[in-house]
Design a protein around this nucleic acid. Structure first.
Lengths: 244, 244
DNA sequence: CGAGGTGTTGAACTTGGTCAAAAGTCGTGG
DNA sequence: CCACGACTTTTGACCAAGTTCAACACCTCG
């Protein structure tokens, strides 16, 4: 078992040697438990920590002038949270727990050590950040041009493909700890239409569900309907420097 | 005047010393002129080059199952193109010129040298990539929750804020070398409604235009209507390693 | 002057939003 | 163990925003 959250996360993709592990271990000072539905930071706060999510679910969101909300990202166990705010001195969004969570903060200022002493890890961090970008681009594509049923289908697929990284059993069933309002805020619908879209997917026999537990009955049909690409499958590490 | 496109771009944000400049210069092999409306690469092509856009406009896009199109990013002179595809072995989208352009390709494989020998530049590349992420997140926020008029207003604002980086005169007038269909594909509308939204903005006295030349008459009103944030203003370089 | 691409305008239509009420779910306390 | 209250989900009726289709106007370039 690896020594810290961050090491565990990164060693999914590359071999982390002892020197690198020492470096990473130094970053991670604490492990913090946060209750469900708690605000971790607000938009405009100074960015001084990134987090590795040990367990639980977080989401980041922002508000619009009319008070409505847009959910930007869901964060799953194993995610590194805060890479998106690296270029800015202040955060660009709110961050909140969906369920009770354990987060491991590490200071932004210490990232320079990774870039100086562990270039291969820096490449990996960069790549991980850009995977988030691709996920966002996929969602935008869906939101810009597709209807309610497809938006929800895409959301379900993205969710399960993300969960399969960490829980290796190729399950097709999972629990969504999110209200339909929140799902709507993520894909640009109201709670009412999320409910209707889920009902439609059920009628087509593509999913089944009881409460918040969903099973994908016809994943191929779901994928085809939204032309789904799995961005989490594999990171191209071929160009990384070999950490001699 | 700096020696290559890439050096010029990066020295906007940090001081590039001679050693780093040598490194960057080695990356950039050629300068290629491309006609208007030419395809530079297709989704699924191998990623082996990134580009610095010297002059002209490009856009990246992808298709949906029904044949409609989603424009993901506009690329302006000075942009580094391809950072979003770094984690993948194949590109995730199409890349096309909007106008005749000059691009400077540099190989993805050589990026490792930057990470090994110039960590400060690697930090900067990372940050630049994440600015793109933030721009995308802003657009998603608008597309998820706002109407046609606001989407177009946001598009205009994002465009001018991006152009002000390179052309330092704080102009409020510019030429859009894009059809309204393309703008629609970027913000999730049809050409018809882009036209109507522009007409609305004009009626309110917020913009004026003749052909594709637009002037922002009331930028404050435009900004307020979409709660606009300028992501290009400044990158937080405080945590970068000092390149001794 | 004519042709093709682009932009504008109008009318019918569709999708998803809004509002409201009913039904289900869950935790708490009696 | 049941009753209550808060929250979430479902369903229905109506409404509004944007799409689609089509015609027409406008540039621009030959």
């Amino acid at each position: 078992m690896s020594r810290t959250c961050l090491i565990e996360k990164l060693s999914h993709h590359v071999d982390v040697n002892d020197i690198q592990a020492d470096l990473l271990e130094g970053l991670e000072r604490e492990r913090r438990t946060v209750a469900a539905d708690a605000l971790i930071h607000s938009a405009g706060d100074r960015v001084d920590s990134l987090y590795v999510l040990r367990s639980g679910w977080l989401y980041s969101y922002s508000y619009l002038p009319d008070g409505s909300r847009q959910v930007l990202h869901l964060h799953y166990p194993g995610d590194i949270i805060g890479l998106a705010d690296i270029p800015f001195a202040q955060t660009t969004h709110y961050l909140r727990t969906a369920s009770e969570s354990v987060i491991c903060p590490f200071p932004k200022r210490s990232l320079d050590e990774v870039f100086v002493h562990a270039p291969a890890l820096a490449c990996l961090l960069f790549s991980i950040g850009m995977v988030d970008h691709a996920v966002l681009a996929d969602r935008m594509r869906i939101m810009g041009r597709m209807g309610a049923r497809e938006r929800v289908a895409h959301f379900l697929l993205e969710m399960i493909s993300r969960m399969r990284i960490t829980s290796d059993d190729g399950t097709d069933e999972y629990e969504i700890p999110l209200t339909q309002s929140l799902i709507g805020d993520a894909v640009g619908l109201t709670n009412v239409y999320v409910s209707r879209a889920l009902a439609q997917l059920h009628q087509r026999g593509w999913i089944s569900r009881q409460q918040r537990r969903v099973r994908l009955l016809d994943e191929d049909a779901l994928r085809a309907s939204v032309d789904f690409s799995d961005r989490h499958f594999k990171i191209d590490t071929s160009w990384f420097p070999t950490s001699a």
